[in-house]
Design a protein around this nucleic acid. Structure first.
Length: 481
RNA sequence: GGCCCUAUCGUCUAGUGGUUAGGACGCCAGGUUUUCAUCCUGGAAACCGGAGUUCGAUUCUCCGUAGGGCUACCA
């Protein structure tokens, strides 16, 4: 049975990079009909908060990644928060085992002593390894220090020789020399387990079969593998994903603008579009097609087509893809989706214009939208107040020819039987009558009836605001001369 | 400094021991459209460098270089 886990740390909002890891992990599991476990790695009490945990849940849900086991779903390998696992004594049990087998030992060095060691090693160009001073303590000395209440950590004793060799699902063969790795802390002085230890215990206890995570964890492999070995367990399969970078090729972070998933949601990105885009960042199926549904991606996904090189997150392309999704949606879905982002005030104002006004207006500006929130910019033209309209008009100068065009158009436009088509036909007549170019006819009409030089198709616009408004505005402009 | 990973248009990527090195975003030009947008057509744009292997390397090997990661009582 394939069991994967997604293990975010609630020390910040759900990040695009973290989401991509979750996505690939999820895709792998769903592709192979496996189980997805969500585990919250909140051993860092200082930085973790439930607010961030909630944001992570929210982001995953919006994006469309579900999990079979987790803090909210429960499951037979719970609890699924490391903080709760600490309370349950899960880690201390394993610590005892390691202590008893000689794979771990108490360490009483202070932070200052350790940094002196480290600086000395750095200065001589030797890779730093803990001196193992604590290992020279006799059992009696250790007990005495413990009894005296001295602060301590527990370190894992790395093997002095041998290599960790494994085959990465994404990168192929990888090897590390164990003798270069320092003994590392597995239990901090506050009694909580460190990451490299907790992760192993949990992956083992939760029977995780495949670990898919970011490349930043590759260097942790020899440490984690050594703990697995010391516990007499076999290593799960591992796949390390390339990182997502900002435009400056540095690891994606806050200074690159929006990085939290809920921010993308709030800006009006449609989650299936983000899903599609992110799936193609570091992975590609065969062929040239770029648009895939979630189900298609699940059935196509495979770790051996995951890229090895880091990828820059291109917001331009995401935005383009989002616009494509908006245009490809069926009308009902499009309206439902866009309505969630339409300002209530703007919505009410448009609805006042008539029964189908809202629907027509939303459709009229569809081609202009990239993100859902754009509707509030492009939709405003439909509900300009008279005052706003007049002040827009005041900025525009109409020539005699323009006024002639407007006058002719006003004469042709009839309130009876008005439609988008009759509006267009009316403009065509003016075109013929005057013999002017398209621009010389259409632009002044657009300016006169909308007060701006860009916007939705005028026939659509007229249908929404009503022929009376159009006629009134034509007359208004004509009357100014 | 040490260790690990990586390297195809500006960006995301496909691909191959012999290809006009393909697609997409962006950019430029033209067209459709009433303007903008959409849409259509076309264009510019890449195999990091040096050795080696080979009849032939972008592709395989090595060495550089560059970028990224790790080197914590963060995860």
């Amino acid at each position: 049975m394939i069991r994967v886990r997604f293990a975010p740390s609630p020390t910040g909002n759900l990040h695009i990079g973290t989401l991509r890891t979750a996505l690939f992990t999820w895709l792998f599991a769903r592709r192979h009909k496996g189980v997805v476990v969500l585990r919250i790695e909140d051993t860092d009490m200082q930085r973790s908060s439930t607010e961030f945990e909630v944001n992570i849940f929210e982001g995953l849900e919006w994006f469309g990644l579900d999990n079979d086991e987790g803090p909210r779903e429960g499951g037979e390998y719970g609890p699924y928060r490391q903080s709760e696992r600490i309370e349950a004594g899960i880690y201390s049990g394993y610590i005892e085992t390691l202590l008893a087998s000689g794979h771990a030992y108490y360490c009483f060095d202070t932070a200052k002593e350790l940094s002196v060691e480290r600086d000395a090693a750095m200065a001589t160009g030797v890779p730093y390894k803990y001196s193992r001073k604590a290992l020279e303590l006799s059992e009696g000395e250790v007990k005495a220090k413990l009894d005296a209440g001295e602060a301590y950590t527990i370190r894992f004793k790395m093997p002095d020789s041998g290599w960790l060799k494994y085959k990465d699902m994404v990168r192929g063969k990888i090897a590390f020399d164990n003798s270069l790795i320092s003994d590392f802390v597995i239990m901090k002085s506050d009694g909580t387990p460190s990451y490299n230890f907790a992760v192993v215990v949990d992956d083992l206890a939760m029977k995780i079969s495949h670990v898919i995570r970011g490349e930043d964890h590759i260097s942790n492999m020899p440490r984690q593998a050594a703990v697995f070995a010391a516990l007499g367990a076999t290593l799960p399969e591992y796949g390390h994903l390339p990182m997502i970078l900002g435009p400056d090729k540095a690891k994606l972070s806050k200074r690159h603008g929006a990085t939290s998933v809920t921010e993308y949601r709030d800006q009006g990105f449609y989650s299936p579009a983000l899903f599609n885009y992110l799936s193609l960042l570091g992975w590609s199926p065969e062929g040239q097609e770029e648009f895939f549904t979630k189900d298609e991606i699940v059935s196509l996904f495979s770790t051996d087509r995951v890229a090895k090189a880091n990828a820059v997150f291109d917001q331009r392309k995401l935005t383009w893809m989002n616009g494509q999704y908006l245009r490809r949606l069926d009308v009902e879905t499009y309206e439902a989706v866009i309505l969630e982002h339409l300002d209530a005030g703007l919505k009410a104002d448009i609805e006042v214009l008539g029964d189908d006004a809202l629907s027509k207006a939303l459709l009229a500006v569809r081609g202009n939208l990239e993100v859902l929130n754009d509707i509030n910019t492009y939709g405003a033209v439909f509900v300009k107040t008279q005052k706003e309209y007049e002040s827009d008009i005041a900025e525009i100068s109409f020539s005699e020819s323009n006024i002639d065009v407007l006058t002719r158009f006003r004469a042709i436009l009839k309130p009876e039987g008005f439609s988008r088509e009759s509006f267009d036909a009316g403009m065509a007549v003016v075109l013929e009558q005057t013999g002017l170019g398209k621009g010389a006819v259409f632009l002044p009409i657009r300016l006169a009836v909308s007060g701006q030089k860009a916007g939705p198709h005028l026939g659509d616009f007229a249908e929404v605001v009503g022929v009376e408004t159009i006629l009134a505005r034509l007359s208004y402009v004509i009357s100014l001369t």
